[in-house]
C-alpha cells in the first residue's frame, strides 16, 4: 500500500510541477505589457505610428479570444486585424476612421469600451444604480435606527443591589 502511494506521489510530482509551470506561464501571458505585439516584423518603423496603432489595438476586442484586445492576442484573426490597423495608420487614417472600419464589420462587440446608446444604458448605468441602491439602504437603516433607538433594558432590583455592592467595594 505504501509503495503504491509513493509511486502515485512520484507520478504526480512532475504533473504538479508542469501545472505550476503552466500557471506561471499563463500569468506571464496575462500580463498585458509582456503580451503586446512581440514580433518585430509586425511593428511599424515609425515609433510614433506604432504607438498610435497600439493605442487603437488595445481598444479592439479579439473576436476569437473575446477577453483580450487584438494587441494582446495570439489568434490568427487578431494578427490580421493588427496588420489592418497598422496599414491604415501608416496610410494616415485617423483613429476614429480606423475604429469605424472595424466597427462596420464586427459591430459594437469589437469595441472593448462599448458606446453609450439606448442598448447599453443599462450596462453603463448598473454601477450608478447599484451605488444608489446601497446609499438608499444605508439612509433607510440610519433613519429607522434614529426613529426607534434600541430600548435600554432596566436593571432588576437584585442587579441594582449587586451593582451597588460592587461600587461600594464590599462584594465580589
Amino acid at each position: 500500500m505504501r509503495r503504491v502511494l509513493a509511486a502515485l506521489r512520484d507520478a504526480a510530482a512532475p504533473a504538479l510541477r508542469a501545472g505550476l509551470g503552466a500557471l506561471a506561464a499563463a500569468w506571464l501571458l496575462a500580463t498585458p505589457v509582456l503580451a503586446a505585439v512581440s514580433d518585430p516584423a509586425e511593428m511599424l518603423r515609425d515609433p510614433a505610428q506604432e504607438e498610435r496603432a497600439r493605442v487603437i489595438g488595445r481598444e479592439l476586442r479579439c473576436m476569437v479570444c473575446q477577453n483580450q484586445s487584438i494587441e494582446d492576442s495570439d489568434a490568427e484573426l487578431a494578427r490580421d486585424l493588427r496588420r489592418i490597423v497598422r496599414e491604415q495608420v501608416s496610410a494616415g487614417r485617423s483613429n476614429t476612421d480606423i475604429m469605424g472600419y472595424l466597427h462596420d464589420r464586427y459591430g459594437d462587440f469589437v469595441l472593448l469600451r462599448p458606446p453609450v446608446k439606448p442598448e447599453t444604458y443599462l450596462l453603463w448605468g448598473t454601477p450608478v444604480i447599484a451605488l444608489g441602491l446601497g446609499l438608499a439602504m444605508i439612509v433607510a437603516m440610519r433613519r429607522r435606527r434614529a426613529a426607534n433607538p434600541a430600548p435600554q433594558p432596566d436593571l432588576s432590583a437584585a442587579e441594582r443591589a449587586r451593582l451597588r455592592s460592587i461600587e461600594d467595594g464590599s462584594g465580589t
Binding site: M63, I84, Y106
Partner: peptide, 12 residues
C-alpha cells in the same frame, strides 16, 4: 489572405 473574410465580419 483572409482579407475579404474580414469585410464579411468573419471571426472563424
Amino acid at each position: 489572405p483572409g482579407r475579404v473574410a474580414i469585410d464579411w465580419g468573419l471571426y472563424g
